[in-house]
């Protein structure tokens, strides 16, 4: 079975998830007697193909419309290129960009999609659903399937290095009627605390209940000489700036101590803090996924424990 990997790259660099997919793809192609084929879309980005040598074939499509990610241009090109590769399984990153591609490709090509996958075999894909609380295994029928792969699911090293496959150039489709235009890219505003550089992070989640209660965790962060960070809902509610968000759509952090306060530990959050040296979780829900990967935990009420820690220092 041919395994197609749609390479994700950003700012002229191949993203780790691409290597994860190449590594897994190589294993699956080997087990099923197929080829691993990498598809790279870019503008003057052929040099990036050198990173994809784990694949047996590299297909490269160049267009000025690929200078930055564009959901419509990328989607259109993939719908034109992928069917010609006799795909058995198409691996797409389950990321902000990949999310725009996988489902669209599923409709355009009439191929099933399994999203949020963290485990894949030749005949099954497992989705991490319900905020990481339940895994759902799908049986794959014969015929091509698209799998959207969660970053952090497989080893990236397995997809690095390799042979010397030729880079096959394919022409881009007609983009004259695109309805989506890239304007500009905006980097996060600086000036705020850099949470990626802290030894101690006190990170707060939905359990804090309201904006006023942030004072309780801020006081602890101050006492510890650390900074206040948060999970996504806090930033979506505008209680803290984007620069404080840890996770998939936020920042990746690896402090010495990560105190997760009222955070359930959804996969998107885990992605951003899994490399912390010591994770201490405070959450009243004993079933919260955070306790699965924290080093220490307590189900005591954060409104009791957090002030008690502050007082004990």
């Amino acid at each position: 079975m041919n395994i197609i990997v749609i390479a994700e790259h950003f700012k002229n660099s191949i993203e780790d998830i691409t290597f994860e997919m190449l590594g897994k793809g190589k294993e699956l192609a080997g087990a099923t007697g197929g080829q691993l084929i990498a598809v790279l879309l870019g503008n003057d980005a052929k040099a990036l193909a050198d990173n994809l040598r784990a694949a047996a074939r590299i297909v490269y499509c160049d267009s000025p419309h690929f200078a930055e990610f564009n959901p419509e241009a990328y989607g259109k090109a993939l719908a034109a290129i992928v069917p010609g590769l006799s795909p058995g399984m198409i691996l797409v990153a389950n990321t902000s960009a990949g999310m725009d591609l996988a489902a669209g490709l599923s409709v355009d090509l009439g191929i099933p999609l399994v999203a949020y996958a963290n485990a894949i075999t030749a005949g099954s894909a497992t989705s991490q659903l319900y905020g990481g609380k339940v895994n759902v295994e799908s049986a794959l029928a014969a015929g091509p399937v698209i799998i959207a792969v969660l970053p952090g699911s497989f080893a990236a090293d397995a997809g690095k290095g390799g042979g010397a496959p030729a880079v096959e150039a394919v022409a881009a489709p007609d983009f004259s009627s695109l309805k989506t235009r890239f304007n500009k890219r905006m980097e996060p505003e600086s000036g705020d605390v850099d949470i990626t550089q802290q030894d101690v992070l006190v990170s707060v989640g939905r359990g804090i209940q309201n904006e006023e209660n942030l004072a309780i965790v801020q006081a602890l962060a101050d006492k510890l000489g650390g900074a206040l960070a948060s999970s996504r809902p806090i930033v979506d509610n505008k209680w803290l700036p984007k620069t404080r968000q840890v996770g998939k759509s936020g920042l990746k952090v690896k402090p010495k101590v990560y105190l997760a306060v009222g955070i359930s530990g959804a996969p998107e959050h885990w992605e951003g803090m899994k490399d912390a040296e010591c994770i201490i979780a405070i959450n009243v829900d004993p079933k919260a996924p955070i306790f699965g990967f924290a080093h220490y935990g307590t189900t005591a009420d954060l409104f009791d424990v957090v002030p008690a820690i502050t007082a004990a220092i």
């Binding site: 990321t95 902000s96 960009a97 890239f182 890219r185 905006m186 980097e187 996060p188």
Partner: peptide
Amino acid sequence: HKEYGGGVIAEFEVS
């Protein structure tokens, strides 16, 4: 505005 990881945002115009 479409959000990527790390707080990076891309601006698109869509018809």
